[in-house]
Computed example of a mutant assay.
Amino acid sequence: MATSSLVVLTGATGFVGFKTLIIALKAGYNVRIVVRSASKGDKILEARSIKALKLTSEILSYVVVPDIAAPGAYDDAVKEATYVVHCASPIPSFGDAAPTPELYDEFFVQTSRKATVGLLESIRKAGTVKRVVITSSIAGNIPLKYFVGHGDDKVFDAENRIALDPGPYGIEFQAYSASKVAALNASEAWMKANNPSFDLISIHPGWVFGRDELCTTTADLETGSTNSVLLSLLKGSQSDEPLMGNMSLVDDVAQVHVSALDPKIEGNQAFVVSSNGINGAMWEDAIEVVKKYFPEALADGRLKSTGKQPTAVVRVDAGKTEKTFCIHLSSFEDQVKSLASQYLELTKP
């Protein structure tokens, strides 16, 4: 059980951030979440699993920061914190309203870089923080060509670094990948240049799937996060464009974030989170999982076995992560079961 050290958490209204919040609270941390509006903060406080914990305002509170990229945005938010977990980041639209291509650089790359460096500056001013944990992505240390099926058999790990793609960006994922490169490279350059009293750990997941409590309708699941891509396949979508097969369960990703706060874990390092061994998983294996565990849903048409999604094999070694955190990353089968179960609960006749 953790002590009641104060953790400041950004991105708690997001998929990974909310699960990280729950795990941090159950581990015994006090948490101050950073939200963009009071209504978003209230939504978190009213979430079922949060209310079940019967928390006081000392244990869980929120602070509003409308513009995370503004200079000094986090100055007040991180005061008196012992740890900071930074999950907030612009993500691809996944069906929601997307920025137009001419705005990709500002929306993804510049916002990510400014928010990350600005947060580090605020933490230095606060003077109390021992460690910051930042959500990155394997898109931050693997060239984009690998994710679309044009790579080779090179094995990547958390130590790989790549240069920033300067754009222009033709698709959202290209801009998103560039944002992760920009934030990662900028954060590590800032740490080297400033040699602060705190250390930095970066977490690099691939696709993240699983139950999302903040999604309370099928429409939420179909548009709100990376889950929408897997769910689309489970509902029979057909695609000829390969996608990387590096996936992880949201519970594992969140657990690694919280476990990384342990002072026994050496700072100033990075960890990838990708299950199913070095070669990852095959997307269409999800259909076999549905056949095995959800035959009734196939029979009534809520799920389908006709989906098509080729896989781009990107070789990623997460052995260091499993060894350091004494965790066996959950299989793709577990990820599919977690998401499909929630979807079917929301579509009960």
Rank of each mutant, 00 (worst) to 15 (best):
P143H: 04
K348L: 15
T100Y: 04
I203E: 04
V290C: 12
P71E: 11
S331P: 07
G170E: 10
A312Y: 07
G17M: 14
C87R: 03
P295H: 13
Y343F: 15
L221C: 06
P101K: 00
V65N: 00
Q342N: 09
G28K: 12
V316A: 04
E121T: 11
Y104F: 15
A88W: 12
W283A: 06
A98G: 13
N185G: 12
L233V: 08
A340K: 01
Y293L: 07
T324Q: 05
T13S: 15
V258E: 01
N268H: 11
T218A: 13
K79L: 08
L119S: 09
S89R: 09
A163M: 08
A318L: 01
V63Y: 02
D67C: 08
I142A: 00
S137Q: 09
T116L: 07
L249W: 15
G149Y: 02
P66T: 03
G206A: 11
A52Q: 13
K304V: 07
G127W: 00
V78Q: 00
A297F: 08
H257Y: 01
C215G: 08
V273Q: 06
G14S: 13
K145M: 07
Q335T: 10
P263K: 00
F18D: 00
G245V: 05
L119K: 10
I278F: 07
E296R: 15
W207P: 00
I23F: 13
H86D: 10
S259H: 03
G14C: 09
F15D: 00
V109S: 03
M191A: 09
V133Q: 04
Q174A: 06
S177L: 01
G17A: 14
L103K: 15
F209V: 09
S61T: 07
F173E: 00
I171W: 09
T111H: 10
V181K: 02
S338T: 06
D334Q: 14
G11C: 11
P205G: 02
V258G: 03
L60N: 02
A12M: 08
T116G: 06
S177K: 02
V64M: 04
Y104N: 06
N30D: 15
N160A: 10
G267I: 13
E106A: 13
V85A: 10
I91M: 11
T306Y: 12
G127A: 07
S57Q: 11
G319C: 06
P90S: 14
Y343G: 02
I265R: 00
D152T: 07
T216I: 06
R48Y: 10
E121L: 06
I278N: 02
S202L: 12
I287G: 01
L230G: 10
T306I: 05
A97Y: 03
P310S: 08
V133N: 02
K337G: 11
G167D: 10
Q342T: 06
V316M: 01
P295E: 11
G11E: 01
S225G: 05
E80H: 15
D96Q: 15
T324Y: 02
P263R: 00
K264Y: 05
